[in-house]
């Protein structure tokens, strides 16, 4: 009998549409609680983060100029790709300690959430745009526009659904993101980059890093070319640090620490609006 040996996968970072190793050459160990097998994830450095931000900045204009319809199609494609790899994600969630039932539910909710936000791609602008009835002879309208490059510290405990729930509203609104996967369980996030890779998402729109929050949080919040920070951590010291750092270039700081992502109500267009700016344009009416 010829037993073929199991091939272990190398888990890499996802930067600028490429699977790359950390430039630091360092790793972080993750132990499978079921069988004590270990996986070595990349322990991202600030330089990895810097490269990711650069890639996000480069991608921003292009992605922002995609039509809402087009972004919706791409998001829907991500949902399709996730659906086709459902089993993989269920087993990964189970490996990370969830029951089969919980895992199935989380994957199915993740797909639903993607579809939910895909649908908003060409609609939230209509809900949040308006023509303002100014009293001068001008046509005046306000529309949402993406804030730019968004740094995200993903939820530590909701490593698939939470991860998706925080990045998707940001990108559907035209932002590009650099996201730090759950430090406790980065597996799903890293696997999700493979889903993204087969989903027509332009390079740089979503960059995914694994690593230690305490090593990266300072850079995530102090980089001068980042416009918004989303923090899903609950640590008060981290929150304070992010807030302080945000002052360097007046970043918008969004805290999602207390949100239960398994709740069906934890999705709405206001999550999209958290990473939007309102632009108001004036023009005279005459001839």
């Amino acid at each position: 009998m010829n037993t073929s040996m199991h091939i272990n996968k190398t888990y890499k970072l996802y930067i600028d549409g490429k699977f790359s190793r950390t430039e630091s050459g360092r790793y972080m160990k993750w132990v499978n609680p079921n069988n004590d097998q270990t996986i070595n994830f990349c322990r991202s450095s600030r330089k990895d983060y810097r490269n990711a931000v650069q890639s996000s900045r480069n991608a921003f204009n292009k992605w922002n100029n995609f039509s809402g319809y087009n972004r919706g199609q791409i998001l829907y494609r991500i949902a399709e790709m996730l659906d086709s790899r459902k089993e993989q994600f269920i087993s990964e969630l189970m490996v990370q300690g969830k029951s089969k039932k919980q895992s199935k539910q989380e994957v199915s909710m993740s797909i639903d959430r993607l579809v939910y936000y895909a649908g908003w791609s060409d609609k939230f602008q209509q809900i949040f745009s308006r023509v303002n009835p100014v009293s001068t002879p001008h046509y005046n309208f306000s529309t949402p526009e993406p804030s730019g490059v968004v740094s995200i510290i993903a939820p530590k405990d909701s490593y698939l659904l939470g991860f998706i729930s925080v990045i998707v509203p940001a990108i559907i609104g035209g932002n590009t993101v650099v996201v730090l996967a759950s430090e406790n369980n980065p597996l799903c996030a890293i696997s999700f980059s493979e889903v993204l890779h087969s989903s027509d998402v332009p390079n740089g729109v979503i960059n995914i890093l694994s690593g230690f929050t305490n090593e990266l949080i300072d850079h995530f919040s102090s980089h001068m070319d980042v416009n918004t920070v989303i923090n899903c951590g609950l640590d008060l010291k981290d929150t304070e640090l992010i807030q302080k750092n945000s002052a360097v270039n007046i970043k918008r700081v969004i805290n999602y620490g207390a949100i239960d992502w398994m709740n069906h109500d934890s999705q709405d267009p206001y999550f999209i609006m958290d990473c939007q700016e309102i632009k108001t344009t004036w023009h005279p009416i005459g001839y």
Binding site: P137, H138, P284, I285, G286, Y287
Partner: peptide
Amino acid sequence: IDQVGCSE
């Protein structure tokens, strides 16, 4: 000539 600007 922009009429509104002119009126202003």
